[in-house]
């Protein structure tokens, strides 16, 4: 058989639209997922059961249900329960963000726990409140240690964005499907989508390797 990438390149504007959609979904889920993850992670770290129990329930629930099921549930089931429409972007964002929050919460909790007790001692001995100690002393050190794991999470989020295609959200895979079905060239269309992801993510992965090496050297 002959490979015909010309039929894909002819639709590069559609792929570009898809790429913008992917980046938009990625940006939303990165901010929401990691932001909410930090809040939930602090809850998991808290001694008070009022914070600990809901945070733990959240993590357990979202770590043990598939993202795809969540996205479909938000898109098809939630609108029946609530009086407003859910856009494909909203459904995909919710599913991916909540799932990422559950996973990154464990990264945040582990990172915070890895900071020596003496750091808390020194902060408290100066008269800092819990929040001040967390913000000024603990988190800046913890985030540095968590960076490789958080970057890995970012890569996962980027790849999970393709699940948006399940509710016809316009992103790279959705556009690849469209091109394949119009031009009967699934091999070329899906190969192109895969290559685009690889080209975007490979440098990011190299960056995490570099960061891990650097952190090892610092410690």
């Amino acid at each position: 058989m002959r490979w015909d990438f010309a039929s894909v390149l002819a639709n590069s504007d559609a792929l570009l639209v898809g790429l913008v959609g992917t980046l938009r979904l990625f940006a939303i889920c990165l901010v929401l997922g990691l932001g909410l993850g930090l809040v939930v992670g602090l809850g998991r770290y808290a001694r008070s059961r009022w914070f600990y129990l809901p945070a733990t329930a959240f993590v357990e629930f979202f770590r043990n249900t598939p993202v795809l099921v969540q996205i479909l549930w938000f898109y098809f089931a939630l609108p029946i329960l609530v009086p407003f429409e859910i856009s494909p972007l909203a459904a995909a964002s919710l599913g991916i963000s909540l799932n990422s929050a559950a996973f990154s919460a464990e990264i945040f909790r582990g990172g915070i726990q890895s900071i020596e007790r003496g750091q808390w001692d020194a902060a408290r001995a100066l008269g800092m409140r819990w929040g001040q100690a967390m913000r000024r002393i603990i988190l800046p050190q913890a985030i540095k240690r968590m960076l490789p794991a958080l970057t890995n999470r970012a890569i996962e989020i980027f790849k999970m964005s393709t699940l948006g295609s399940a509710v016809a959200y316009v992103e790279l895979l959705q556009q690849g499907k469209l091109i394949a079905s119009l031009n009967f060239n699934p091999i070329e269309a899906y190969t192109t989508v895969a290559v685009i992801f690889f080209v975007l993510l490979w440098p990011l992965l190299q960056f995490t390797y570099w960061m891990e090496r650097r952190l090892k050297r610092d410690e």
Binding site: E116, G118, Q119, D121, A122, A123, R124, A125, L126, G127, M128, R129, I137, Q141
Partner: peptide, 18 residues
């Protein structure tokens, strides 16, 4: 917090903020 601001402490392991 008020007391800790008036009583300084120095630790065996220094506990400087790295």
């Amino acid at each position: 917090i008020a007391v800790r601001q008036r009583v300084g402490m120095v630790f065996q392991q220094f506990n400087l903020f790295p």
